[in-house]
Amino acid sequence: MTATAVKAMGLVKWFGEGDVKTYAVRDVSFEAYFGEMLYIVGPSGSGKTTLLSMISGILRPDDGSVLVDNKMIWSLSNDQIADFRLKSVGFVFQDYHLFPRLTTAENVAIPLILRRENWDNAIKTAKEYLEIVGLKERAELTPRKLSGGEQQRVAIARAIAGRPDILIFDEPTASLDGDTGRKIVDFIKKDVLNDRRCIIIVTHDGRIYEYADRIMQMEDGRISGTEQGAPHEE
């Protein structure tokens, strides 16, 4: 862990106005580093997803700022923020959000196509990433024909296909059984994480805490504590 990948400063987010105004995140500051797998954990409604959305350029904070690659992302224009998400951040959503009408290779190629890469080149690259996640043979199938674990791997391939610096995982094991979940996180740690990449995972699945380099506990929109992850046994 060396350079800072993400620096959040005094982030505040509320929803609603007047009597129904509810604070989701209150004055949160933290740093995440390259080469680190940072977990944000906490009970439902503690503000994990809201925090994740603000640091990834999806949800504008009501106060505070986020520094990524020496840029204050929330001072960028909407198009620049979209470009930031496309080029610097890879997302793995809780429900994967794969396109059921596209093949797995086409799904993986989406960030590349959005980057205006030639279709054939994008599909070729996508297949290379499918090979990395062990699904080369499934390239022409639609996601519906894949198991939950395989769909998760396709989502990971899509997230890393754009070679982002920051990878965001939202509850990556929520839809998987224990064994598959552990295998997926093990894969992420061993094959996806590297010195030039920072992985931030939101989870409340205690079974995968052992893979964390650092665990940030959230409660009522605040960071209630940070601890080093438990050493992972091979």
Partner: peptide
């Protein structure tokens, strides 16, 4: 939601 995912990924 798929269009939402595209937007999240970086589609303008």
């Amino acid at each position: 939601e798929k269009f939402g995912a595209l937007k999240a990924i970086g589609a303008k």
